[in-house]
Amino acid sequence: MVRLIVNRLLLSIVLVVISSIAIFFLMSLVPGDPARSILGAAATPDSIERLRQQLGLDQPLLAQYGSWLLGALRGDLGESVFTGDQVVTLILARVPVTASLILLSTLVIAALGTALGLLSAVRGGVLGKVLDVVSLVGLALPSYWVAILLVALVAVALRIFPATGYFAFADDPGRWLLGLILPVAALSLGGVTIVAKQMRDSAMDVLARDYIRVLRATGVRESSIVLKHVLRNSALPSLTVVGLTVVGSLTGAVFVENVFVLPGLGTLVTQATTSHDLPVVLGVGVFFTLFVIVVNLAIDLLYGVLNPKVRVS
């Protein structure tokens, strides 16, 4: 396990550099000039050029990236071009919102997907066919469309849950949870159906094995067989799907946060991209890359916990 963690840490450096290079040069292709946006349409060419020099935008792209990378290696992700705030400060202020959304979505996806998959495998019949249909629907509907639909039906028409807004957990846990129910539902729908289908297929495979028949023949209770043997042996392939779903939820979170007006990293990177605020976009990109690395490492470690025979390197 120690070797695995060291390898992941070394790999994280390479991935962060590669992702930052990709983000930097892709952003350079996006039309727009931060200096012109800051000064407005009435700005003179001379004032725009002076501001570009102050911001370092007149330097070659390689020089700009090299300057940013040196600062990032020291823990300095730069300053926002528009507000002048430290990028690290902006990210840390938004992390609790995005972390709450993704954490709750992960719990819903893992718990509900596992329960539905097991139930479908044990009961089968109509429930299995319904799960197949729901899985196709969940995969076909993008999270932002589901979010808009939930706002229109549940928040606006029925007025059951709030359509927008976020309350910090420390200020009001009840309103924090209430405000995240619809965003979590929109972000979790596709993941729940994918995990449920994978769990059902894995559980059905385990249920068909000889040792399960032996356990039943010796009088072991069905509930014990399902919880102690089927669930444990079916969890490994489903765990991979959960990890992939969590990573994919980062993209969904960007759209969901904008629909529900949540002050998270999704809305931050959207605003920064629109205004061509490159340091902020790079900072959020680095954070997302590190998040993916941590999730993959956690999945590898859980593999070893659930199945000691599995060796990761």
Rank of each mutant, 00 (worst) to 15 (best):
I21F: 15
I21M: 15
I21V: 14
A22N: 02
I23A: 13
I23S: 03
I23V: 15
F24A: 10
F25W: 07
F25V: 10
L26F: 15
L26Y: 01
M27E: 10
M27S: 13
S28K: 05
S28R: 13
L29T: 01
L29G: 08
V30M: 13
V30L: 14
V30I: 13
V30F: 09
P31C: 08
P31V: 11
P31M: 09
G32D: 00
G32Y: 01
G32H: 01
G32K: 04
G32F: 06
G32V: 03
G32S: 06
D33K: 07
D33N: 15
D33W: 10
P34I: 11
P34A: 10
A35H: 02
A35D: 03
A35S: 15
A35I: 02
A35T: 05
A35P: 06
A35C: 05
R36S: 14
R36M: 13
R36C: 07
R36N: 12
R36K: 14
R36Y: 05
R36T: 14
S37N: 14
S37R: 13
S37H: 09
S37C: 00
I38K: 09
I38E: 06
G40M: 08
G40K: 10
G40A: 13
G40N: 11
G40H: 09
G40P: 08
A41S: 12
A41M: 07
A41Y: 09
A41E: 15
A41Q: 14
A42N: 11
A42C: 00
A42F: 12
A42Y: 11
A43W: 08
A43N: 05
A43S: 11
T44S: 15
T44C: 00
T44K: 07
T44P: 04
P45C: 03
P45R: 05
D46P: 00
D46N: 00
D46K: 03
D46E: 14
S47R: 14
S47E: 14
S47Y: 00
S47I: 03
S47M: 12
S47W: 00
S47V: 09
S47L: 08
I48W: 04
I48Q: 08
I48S: 07
I48C: 04
E49S: 11
E49N: 05
E49T: 08
E49D: 10
R50C: 00
R50N: 02
R50M: 05
R52H: 06
Q53A: 15
Q53T: 12
Q53S: 13
